[in-house]
Design a protein around this nucleic acid. Structure first.
Length: 397
DNA sequence: TCTGGGGTCCTAGGACCC
DNA sequence: TCTGGGGTCCTAGGACCC
């Protein structure tokens, strides 16, 4: 049994807290970020039942005196950078999970920096002192447990789950509290009479896989037995770029949609170029008048980040959906580029283990690839999962 | 509850290959 | 002409998270 050395650090009510920090007149008052839909709510607003994802009219009814501020993404990105700079100084292995949260692996740091609990406490006070933001931290042996501990510690708290207290912490919780269990899985679990994690732990892995599907069954079994394999992995490569726009219910002309599509593609392509990434699959996302969704996608032979190449495909996908849009109306349009270079099909290289440095051979091979696929399609870094391993195993019987 | 914008991962069928 | 056992990739949809 290993020690609890995984930290999950999570800024409390991040967007709303940044707003309160930057405008002291908001301190202590209910703050809601985002008109239309609540993107974040301060704890003062949450106390009144407001939560993110909620429609603005409902939020206003629950908390009429709330101050609604428009989101300032630049400020949040800036605050996030500062936060992560502190995370990086705290541990060598940091896996970012969103703008405001990360996993930190503090194993092996005890002699230099103290116990995980001490490191966590120091991290919290440093963030408070330097960034004037509250973060909650969970410490445990596994990521899911650390994440759930930080959630339980909120707001502005610290919870360490030692191995001998794992059951006590996890088993009484309702299944929907598990990270990764949403309304759909929770409903299925309840149908099976499984309401708490403790009850979940009574079922065999086979039975869970059969009833909930391979991945979900395996994962939930692992969670219930504190055996998830997921380690903290720094520098995970992003797997898609996207942009979307909600349209309201008003009918849209074809011209209007095409102009909007062009803007979305341009925005996404520019972000990809700035990051030096390219992708091969264009996905058009649609939401119709009745709020049902559909997607249409097409893959190119080679990755690209060229606006024009992506736009041609996007237009074709939109044209193919024209009838459905005309009949059902459209309330959202979005573009996502996936199958990014380095995350999908790969090229296997055999490097000579001769006397000459392998680095030289690698550089040569990389140049070769750049010539064949374009510089943007070739990235250098640690191997990513799935790069050139078998993509499937099967046993048909 | 009349519903933003950004992501990740999984499932399933079909085309196609050796 | 029907058939084994092992794969890859593409497309569409869905669940979930912040």
């Amino acid at each position: 049994v290993s020690d609890p050395t995984i930290l999950h650090a999570d800024a409390d009510a991040f967007f709303a807290s940044v707003e309160q920090r930057d405008d002291p007149s908001l301190l202590g008052r209910p703050v809601i970020v985002g008109p239309g839909v609540v993107m974040a709510a301060s704890y003062e607003a949450r106390a009144r039942g407001v939560h993110s994802g909620m429609g603005a009219s409902v939020a206003r009814r629950l908390c009429p005196e709330a101050i609604v501020v428009p989101p300032r993404f630049r400020a949040y990105v800036e605050a996030s950078r500062a936060l992560f700079a502190i995370f990086e100084r705290t541990a060598p292995n940091v896996e970012g999970h969103s703008l405001e949260e990360a996993f930190l692996d503090v194993s092996g740091l005890e002699r230099i920096k103290g116990t995980p609990a001490e490191i966590a406490a120091r991290l919290r006070s440093e963030v408070r002192a330097k960034e004037r933001l509250a973060i909650s931290v969970g410490v445990a042996r596994t990521k899911v447990l650390a994440k759930m501990a930080s959630g339980a510690a909120k707001p502005d708290g610290l919870i360490v789950v030692p191995p001998e207290r794992e059951r006590e912490f996890l088993y009484p919780l309702a299944v929907e509290r598990i990270w990764g269990v949403g309304p759909s899985t929770a409903a299925r679990l309840r149908e099976l009479g499984i309401e708490t994690v403790g009850r979940l732990a009574e079922h065999s892995e086979e039975s869970l896989r059969e009833r909930l599907g391979e991945a979900t069954g395996r994962r939930l079994y692992a969670v219930a037995h504190f055996r998830e394999p997921g380690r903290v992995r720094r520098g995970r490569a992003r797997r898609s770029f996207g942009s979307q726009s909600a349209l309201g219910r008003r009918p849209r002309s074809r011209r209007e949609l095409e102009a909007l599509l062009a803007r979305l593609v341009e925005r996404v392509a520019r972000r990809m170029r700035r990051k030096g990434r390219a992708g091969r699959t264009v996905v058009l996302r649609l939401r119709f008048g009745d709020f049902t969704r559909a997607s249409r996608s097409q893959s190119l032979p080679r990755p690209t980040a060229t606006t024009n190449a992506l736009l041609i495909v996007a237009r074709r996908l939109l044209a193919a959906s024209e009838r459905a849009i005309a009949e059902r109306g459209i309330t959202l349009i979005g573009i996502t580029i996936t199958n990014l270079d380095g995350t999908g099909a790969g090229v296997q290289l055999e490097l000579p283990l001769g006397p000459e440095p392998a680095v030289e051979a690698l550089d040569e091979a990389l140049d070769d690839l750049r010539e064949r696929f374009g510089a943007a399609a070739v990235t250098r870094g640690p191997p990513r999962p799935g790069d050139r391993e078998p993509r499937s195993f099967s046993d048909l019987g």
